[in-house]
Write a protein that binds this DNA or RNA. Structure first.
Length: 933
DNA sequence: CTAGAGCGCTCG
DNA sequence: GTACGAGCGCTCTAGC
């Protein structure tokens, strides 16, 4: 059939399909030989789904899958940095690229690519040709670069979200019509493709400008007329760069194709070609399904696994469907769910609450899921009426199971040892349930599964995971709750909407569990998950619920004292400046220092503002300038007041009189915890004035605070891992490690050590842990770079194991894309093979991660064993600060607890790892944290 | 008013 | 252009 009026051309962006498939699926391999095949599998499934969906009245008459070919295109000739910061193709994906071409042909769909051109250019050319012949075009892609083609019978279809994008859709995305999209892109640039654009101008501003001036050329010609000085300057100065950007984003509609639209006519797949291909790939489920469709016999695929048995197949994709969720509004229905859970032995659980602070919020509803697509929501305390009316304006919505009845019904399964409860960030839900008298156990946590598998690759929030691994964008909570002043709490969300949202969360959690759990074995992180991640949940939940007592009076007094001092300093600063300004504004301060007073060294950062960091001000103060010296004092007080004495008071729980932080288990890529709301891991200690904040952290009456901290744990780990005999011996002899290092490096006997030499050695020791560089050390010690490099060279000479460790670690990271701690924790370093400064960052992070991560593993092991070790004593573990644990202990039991805790901490590496350096924990005690430290 | 970016500072 | 890993408060700007 000749292409013409009435024809409908579908153009599929093949690369997008492949990458989507690759990232959405676990790393599947072909059973017979282990060839990575996940992307091909996903690609075939997507093609199959496409073919099924594409039938019907709006079916295409012509279709092609378009691929990129080669990494060098004509755009690189215009701009050699085009797509320069693209990550390299993952190793597992490379061999799959040709297979996806074969797959396309096996489905009997035209498969097109052209050396030196991107798929987008071919798509552009074909779209224009089809339009000129009076046909319609649907581009199956979500790539915004293709939006310039929309209009005049050309539309886009985002296959993942199943959303059509027409001219209005483009307008929504870019603020201009398709014909002006390239103008907006030329201004806004694109960090993914490394299109420079105009710095400081994003899509919103670009659209505004284009709409005002009509098009890019007019805008650039009349740039003088722009009112905002910064924009005007940017557009005038960066004109060449903007014009180049336009050429980069403008698609080529005249690519030299060696085929015509007529060649793309839709053809039925040939079973004799397609089925053998699927058999070769060993896609059992898919070949069966397609064989049924084509009315042919499914090919027999031999089952010759090379991998361990118990290797689960990828979960079959069940589409997300909110209408399939059940809203449970009576006890009989809930009992049916409970029976189903008992039958299944496992359930995904999620709670909905009135806020985010587990210690104060109320339970609003519970959702459950027992299979992909099968989920329910149990509304419990949804209300209606005025949410701010404290006098009964809000009333409970009818048709909800009474809270106590529902909990009584669920409690037996939630506490049943034989039933696994899955959650996403289960610590949150477990704490909520605990407050309602339900002790949830045993558990799995999809957030922690992802963390064990993917630390360093991406975040582990549900939205990220769902989009990445399920290809599904969860219902956002924003539209339900609103924002700002008008925001409501979840109990005022209508049950219908709440139900769809909440049940979906449980459904997603279930599917993530199905996706991740089988991968633990394959990726060899089962032990990490089971001994370092999951057991942290109950331990941290206990610590967080215990909280630490904070004396409001102490903070309040300090706050007043700080305020007075600050007022005095502020007056002095204004006096010295000769005008009043906001001392807290780095921008205004910079202008005073470097413009008005013309002090030396005014360096501007990337936003054009002067840098006024402590290092800059210290240099100026050292030259005898009073104003920067006063500002430094003011800043210190300001920090202490706002972040600590003031903000901390707001975190005192009125019921407990204590501060309950929240630890994020998957917060740091290295295995460290992070503390939030409030962060109790950065309470001041280094300055005398700051340290006094710790006096406000107190023990309850009759008790003391006890602190144990690992002495030099990271250097000890380094000495072990890099095998540094001199350092190991110094530790064995209990020497001052920095002095010993200095002695070794500078040939100074210990009894002649000076503080200055020791200080330098200390800086170098830390530098090594951080992935040392001459530049970094020079800046830290404020010495010339060459001198710093000399220090490093002699360090490497005296401790040759260091160099080997660094080289081996780097090589391992480059080969595998991750590094490991002594306990097997993986920390991914995806940028290690990048180009430019990013590689440097990745390299230093790779050096540091095994050291910092091993220390994190060790204290986690100690924390997990601690509750049992002190169970019979009147003591509670309250806080962790990376290498320190803080307890609250009855006065008369302090010595016993110290001994027990020390034993656990010092033996925490055993028996999994035998360190050839001993671990030492120092202890301190007192009425408050300042005394105990 | 609200959201987000950037800066600066706190800790191990 | 750089030391590694985090969280949070303030200012400033853009946009509703």
């Amino acid at each position: 059939m000749t292409f013409g009026k009435g024809c409908h051309l579908h153009l599929i962006d093949g690369s997008a399909f492949i990458f989507r498939a690759f990232h959405a699926l676990p790393p599947l391999t072909r059973k017979s030989d282990g060839l990575p095949i996940g992307a091909v599998s996903g690609f075939c499934n997507m093609l199959q789904k496409y073919v099924e969906d594409a039938s019907g009245p709006d079916a295409p008459t012509h279709v092609a899958v378009i691929f990129d070919k080669g990494s060098h295109t004509f755009r690189n000739d215009m701009y050699d940095l085009y797509k320069a910061n693209r990550e390299e193709m993952p190793e597992a994906l490379r061999p799959q690229m040709p297979l996806t071409r074969r797959a396309t042909e096996a489905f009997n769909i035209a498969c097109k690519e052209l050396e030196g051109y991107e798929a987008d250019d071919i798509i552009a050319t074909l779209s224009v040709q089809a339009r000129e012949l009076g046909g319609r075009v649907t581009i199956i892609s979500s790539d915004k670069d293709l939006m310039q083609l929309v209009g005049g019978g050309v539309e886009m279809l985002d296959a993942m979200k199943n959303r059509r994008i027409d001219v209005d859709g483009v307008r929504e995305k870019f603020g201009v019509g398709p014909e002006r999209v390239v103008d907006v892109q030329a201004l806004a640039g694109d960090s993914v493709d490394n299109v420079p654009g105009a710095p400081g101008i994003g899509i919103k501003t670009a659209a505004l400008l284009i709409n005002e001036f009509g098009d890019l050329e007019t805008l650039l010609d009349r740039a003088e007329e722009i009112k905002q000085p910064k924009r005007r300057q940017t557009l005038i100065e960066k004109r060449d760069q903007i014009e180049l950007s336009k050429k980069l984003v403008q698609l080529d509609t005249n690519t030299p194709l060696d085929f015509t639209l007529d060649d793309l006519e839709v053809k039925e797949p040939d079973p004799d070609v397609l089925l053998p291909f699927l058999a070769e790939m060993e896609f059992r489920t898919l070949s069966k399904r397609i064989a049924d469709k084509l009315g042919a016999e499914a090919p027999v695929i031999a089952d010759t696994p090379v991998q361990a048995a118990g290797d689960d197949p990828a979960p079959e994709a069940v589409p997300f469907d909110a209408s399939a969720y059940e809203c449970v509004r009576d006890l009989e229905t809930l009992e049916k769910w409970v029976a189903a859970i008992r039958d299944r032995g496992v359930v995904a659980v999620d709670t909905e609450t009135t806020g985010l602070d587990e210690m104060t919020v109320d339970l609003v509803g519970i959702s459950l899921s027992t299979a992909a697509g099968k989920a329910c929501y149990i509304p419990l305390t949804h209300k209606t009426g005025a949410s701010d009316d404290l006098f009964g304006g809000a009333t409970l919505v009818e048709g909800q199971i009474p809270l106590d009845d529902a909990l009584a019904c669920l409690k037996p399964v939630l506490e049943d040892d034989a039933i696994l409860k899955i959650g996403q960030n289960m610590k949150y839900d477990a704490k909520i349930f605990a407050r309602y008298g339900v002790k949830v156990a045993p558990i799995d946590d999809t957030m922690l599964l992802s963390y064990a598998l993917h630390a360093g690759l991406h975040g582990h929030g549900m939205d990220t995971l769902s989009e990445r691994y399920l290809g599904h964008e969860p219902i956002p909570i924003k539209p339900l709750l609103g924002s700002g002043k008008s925001a409501i709490t979840f109990d005022f969300v209508p049950i219908e909407e709440a139900s769809a949202y909440a049940a979906e969360d449980a459904d997603i959690t279930w599917r993530l569990w199905e996706t991740f759990k089988p991968q633990l074995h394959r990726e060899k992180v089962t032990t990490v998950y089971e001994t370092l991640e999951r057991p942290m949940v109950p331990v941290l939940a206990e610590m967080e619920m215990a909280g630490v007592k904070v004396d409001r009076e102490v903070l309040s007094r300090m706050s007043n004292a700080f305020a007075q001092k600050m007022a005095g300093l502020e007056a002095e600063i204004h006096e010295l400046a000769g005008e009043t300004f906001n001392v807290g504004s780095p921008k205004q301060l910079g202008e005073i220092l470097f413009d008005k007073m013309s002090l030396p060294g005014g360096k501007r950062g990337k936003t054009g503002a002067y840098a006024t960091g402590a290092d800059v001000l210290e240099d100026l103060a050292a030259e005898g300038h009073d104003l920067p010296a006063r500002v430094l004092d003011w800043r210190q007080l300001s920090k202490l007041k706002s972040t600590y004495t003031d903000a901390l008071q707001d975190h005192i729980n009125p019921e407990t009189g204590r501060v309950h932080t929240s630890y994020i288990i998957s917060g740091a890529a290295t295995g460290r915890l992070a503390s939030t709301d409030p962060n109790l891991q950065n309470i001041p200690v280094r300055s005398e004035e700051g340290r006094r904040i710790r006096e406000a952290f107190v023990a309850d009456e009759g008790k003391l605070l006890l602190s144990l901290d690992y002495s030099q744990i990271e250097l000890r780990i380094l000495a072990h891992m890099a095998d540094l005999p001199a350092m190991k011996q110094a530790f064995a002899e209990g020497q001052d490690i920095h002095a010993a290092t200095a002695s070794e490096m500078f040939n100074v006997p210990l009894d002649q050590m000076t503080p200055e030499i020791r200080r330098q050695a200390k800086a170098i020791n830390f530098g090594v842990i951080y992935g040392i560089s001459g530049f970094g050390l020079a800046r830290n010690l404020r010495i010339p770079r060459a001198e710093a490099q000399g220090f490093i060279d002699s360090y490497f000479e005296r401790f040759p194991g260091i160099k080997d460790y660094m080289e081996e670690t780097k090589a391992f990271a480059k080969e595998h894309g991750f590094v490991r701690t002594l306990f097997g924790r993986r920390v991914h370093t995806p940028e290690i093979n990048a180009k430019g400064p990013r590689a440097g960052f990745a390299y230093r992070a790779a050096i540091n991660a095994p050291i910092q991560g091993t220390a994190a593993d060790i204290i986690r092991r100690a924390m997990i064993r601690m509750p049992a070790a002190i169970a019979d004593l009147p003591a509670k573990m309250l806080l962790q600060v990376h290498d320190e644990l803080i307890f609250e202990v009855d006065e008369n039991a302090v010595d016993t607890v110290t001994a027990r805790a020390r034993e656990v901490m010092e033996g925490a590496a055993d028996p999994a790892v035998h360190l050839n350096v001993k671990l030492v924990a120092d202890a301190g005690q007192g009425r408050n944290w300042a005394e105990a430290h």
